[in-house]
Design a protein around this nucleic acid. Structure first.
Lengths: 223, 223
DNA sequence: TCCATCGTTCGCTCCATGACGAACCATTTC
DNA sequence: GAAATGGTTCGTCATGGAGCGAACGATGGA
């Protein structure tokens, strides 16, 4: 009877304040254990379990056991894109500029860098001719391949991943798109392991360290 | 306390089977009166009123009075994009190929053509050099401007609209993008008024008329 | 003017489900 | 082993809200 995708089931899974908050947390946090999600949504562990189960049944998140912990992450980049679209709609009118400064400046979006930092880096790579624009993605130019390898990112394993290589992700706070996909994730991870950015404890968003300031300036010019 | 967009409110509005179904109907139908939405979701007029009010308060839809009717449409193209993203996630696994053939072939997506018809036309325009790809949109080439004017579409008023001119919309059934925005809407409307496609009564989806077959072939080659 | 149609408001019922605490299992640590 | 920690299961409670019918305004047509 009902044709097309089963939106009702999905809407039911998404349409709860606590669950959507969990998805939101996972957008920034890459992966979190159950307790963090319970705490982050202000709900008891028992309640969190129920919500996480439901989200998992709807295939919006996936979990793996790590010892006595259970870590959760968004199931697919497609889900991340959906949450992003929801956030884009949810931001409206006077609330636009109410996005807290730290979040506008730098934050994770799923598993890559977003906010002005993510966009600045993307723009710098475009200006430098390391990336070019394609229909639904970015493409890595020959000079870009060199650049990424020199930056310490091995490209071969990234290409082997099943996910999109250099996806374009639209940012809800800045309304422009930035590098995502396997390459975006690798870049974020590299910048993180270089100690250039750090997660702010107990707050969402990222901070650029002093050495990060220098490094970013050296590699990307003024962001 | 809660930073960023107010996802909870939005999720609440979206997270109901009847309401999401209404949004789905509006994706295909451009605009519908309250009764059609009630009937289409299998719900009493009284219930429909409540849902429509809620959707309107969440600014997902807008309404205008026409005599004793009240016609509803999606509030913004951004909302359409969000619903599209939800549909993309909702289609999964074995259901992918379960999308009914008529809907895969031709249908409205918000206010422009989608399905294979929409993509075929978009591809033909790209191949013919009438459209080119830009970062988040299509761009109309000089030859494209001629083409659209010759096809009976005045471009000037379209450019004056506040909405995006030639947006790229990702299709949930075909997973590729097609022409949307003001230009896409105008194209769909033109093709419709030429009598090339017709809405299927009581079914979702569109049919291409015999004269449409000829006309499309003449203008776009084999789709 | 009267009637038909469309939509809304109101009062009501009823079910789904979100929330919790307490007890329980599983894993790591000491 | 025992203790500590993370997660799950279960039973219960409360509430939100989805649904309807009936009565009511408003509009348009005959």
């Amino acid at each position: 009877m009902d044709a097309g995708p089963d939106l009702a089931a999905l809407a039911g899974a998404v349409g709860d304040a606590t669950r959507i908050r969990m998805l939101e947390l996972l957008m920034e946090g890459r992966s979190l254990v159950a307790k963090e999600l319970a705490f982050g949504t202000g709900v008891s562990p028992a309640t969190a379990t129920a919500h996480l189960k439901r989200l998992e049944q709807a295939r919006l998140i996936r979990s793996t056991r790590q010892g006595r912990n259970k870590v959760f992450r968004l199931a697919t980049p497609t889900v991340a894109r959906m949450v992003e679209a929801l956030m884009t709609v949810a931001v409206r009118g006077p609330r636009v500029s109410a996005t807290p400064e730290p979040l506008r400046a730098a934050r994770y979006c799923y598993d890559h860098l977003a906010g002005r930092l993510g966009m600045g880096i993307t723009d710098a790579l475009l200006r430098g001719g390391h990336l070019s624009l394609r229909r639904r993605a970015f493409a890595l130019t020959p000079s870009g391949e060199e650049w990424f390898e020199a930056f310490g990112i091995k490209l071969a394993p990234l290409r082997d991943q099943r996910r999109q290589f250099a996806h374009r992700c639209l940012d809800w706070s800045e309304r422009r798109d930035h590098l995502a996909g396997a390459l975006g994730a690798a870049l974020a991870s590299r910048v993180f392991s270089l100690g250039w950015v750090e997660r702010q404890p107990d707050s969402r968003g990222l901070v650029v360290t002093p050495s990060g300031q220098r490094g970013l300036k050296r590699h990307f010019g003024s962001l």
